[in-house]
Amino acid sequence: MIEIKNLNKAYGSTKVLSNINLKLEENKIYGLLGRNGVGKTTLLNIMSNVIRANSGEALLNGENIHENSKVLENIAIVRESGFGIEDIKVKKILKAAKTLYKNWDEEYMKFLIKEFDLNIKKNYSKLSRGNKTIVGLIIGLASRAPLTLFDEPSLGLDASYRYKFYNLLLQDVEKNPRTVIISTHLIDEVTHLFEEVIILKNQKVYLKEEVESLMGKAYFLSGKLEKIEPIIKGKNIISKEEFGTITIVGVFDCLTKEEKDNLKEKGIEISAIPLQKLFVLLTEKESVEGII
């Protein structure tokens, strides 16, 4: 289990993470979401000892991650920014990963190189953005680390390679269970992968919830506002848009069966809010609060 306690990080005078507390279970796929600059990459980098926190701690199975080789050999991070070096052959990067990762699967790496059609003789700096991402994905998958962190794993990838990665990840996690945290902006594409999502907002954990339960309380109601209003009074409203006489209201709250039946009887359409849209609404919520 991963536990993050009272974690703080600032770059100079700019605070990025403030008093982060999290508990993550083993063998689950988590989505780490948040708007640009909210601290997703920083959090992943701290969880993998790439950068140091100002205070607080990150624990894996009760042991502090920071500078702990026994714990770190169970963690792999695929950073959106690469490996901190550009002028190096891809082959050399893979060789270093092979030497340094405890559970490295060489055969799987070879399979992935073929699957992604990667030329490992090339210099990393000469690769396209997509191929640089692929190098990271291959390392993340072949590392077979019990905790694997992917920071923006779809950056620069075309749709075909993105879906290939999602499928390979699902297949591999099924065969070799492990905890995976994926930070991404292409939320709709990966919703089916996530078991839980963590949303960072204003330097803090805004929300951590199972996808199923999250989606089970996020609805768009469309119909006449005067009919919707009495039923949703006191509910958490996250959006409201008017199209002529029709109003679409976003509700982020539990609706009982009776309330749903009542809405349907009044001709109000109920539809689920896609995760990406929900994320956008939640992270912009200040501007729509108190609209009803």
Partner: peptide
């Protein structure tokens, strides 16, 4: 400039 970032990228401790 090479081994240090690669080692840290692949979960080695600084120590």
């Amino acid at each position: 400039y090479e081994s240090f970032p690669l080692s840290l990228s692949f979960s080695m401790t600084r120590k």
